[in-house]
Design a protein around this nucleic acid. Sequence first.
DNA 1: CGCCTTGTTGCAAATGAATTGCAAACTGTG
DNA 2: CACAGTTTGCAATTCATTTGCAACAAGGCG
Lengths: 162, 162
Amino acid sequence: MKQPCALHPHPHSHAHRLIQPPLNELTEQLRRRDRKITAPRQAILEVLRRHQHPLTNREIHAALGESECDLATVYRNLNTLEQMGMVRRFDFGDGTARFELLAEGDDGHHHHLVCTRCSTVVEVDGCFSTEVEARLARTHGFTQITHRLEFFGLCPKCAAGA
Amino acid sequence: MKQPCALHPHPHSHAHRLIQPPLNELTEQLRRRDRKITAPRQAILEVLRRHQHPLTNREIHAALGESECDLATVYRNLNTLEQMGMVRRFDFGDGTARFELLAEGDDGHHHHLVCTRCSTVVEVDGCFSTEVEARLARTHGFTQITHRLEFFGLCPKCAAGA
DNA sequence: CGCCTTGTTGCAAATGAATTGCAAACTGTG
DNA sequence: CACAGTTTGCAATTCATTTGCAACAAGGCG
Ligand SMILES: [Mn+2]
Ligand SMILES: [Mn+2]
Ligand SMILES: [Zn+2]
Ligand SMILES: [Zn+2]
């Protein structure tokens, strides 16, 4: 029940971020905001808890197993969870949204390094560019500046075997 | 015929990048690669030449005027031009691709600052993170690392009037 | 200038992610 | 247990983008 991420190949030497809030803490967040604790919802959160890499709606749906629910329900729930700040949406530019569970209080801002061939995902931590954003704010008068940044490249395995 | 960008609001104080290769130079590139110089193609290149901000397929199609062609043709041409390295595709995360014309030899790598309310686009020049990429390469063994980065914020006009 | 090969176009249909209308089922609460 | 407000399943819809196919046009060549 607590198997590691089977959906995504990723370098074993680097563990993913190890947040994994316990399920009861998650349902607590739901309860607090008058969201109902349904079977699909719990199952989805369980899936997200198990996989600390970004997952697509379809992948989450596929990983549900028993408590199967409609794919539309997965979409709806991830939107809800995003609005509640419980998951973060990522965009790897392939037209399919991906989600990661957040620890409470964490805004989840971080980046990834994605293999353009096998889709291996490496969690990149550390975010620079606060100076860049400050400069942009100063130069162009923009406020509330954020950014979306992902890295792409060829993973060692793919570089070798191809 | 050489009106400025009418499709996108953008701060007047900052001109966009002023590449604008002449049309004949562009058709020359086509000829060199056994691509035919058709009316739709020339018209599309003209539109791109006039607007040095990222344009969507639909926007390009709408800006064609006389030499109207099918929207599918616009899509096909932008894919072709991208493969040929004559335009660069950008992704602002709204599910719609945008394109900018490139000067020959330029790979067009750069970033934007986009207003989340009115979609004003500011061209950001300067690309840091070569060190970050080098670090990622070293740490994870990836090669050919690039990145996709866009900034988002509230433009001064929107911050004021709302 | 006509012919031929090949790239291109228009049009309509297909794809694929994501959203939505609606009626039925369910959750939390009193 | 009953009620009000959510959530779900299912099917239909939207929207960007792609694609099959037959008609067409561009460029090379004789
Ligand atoms: Mn991540
Ligand atoms: Mn640009
Ligand atoms: Zn790889
Ligand atoms: Zn704005």
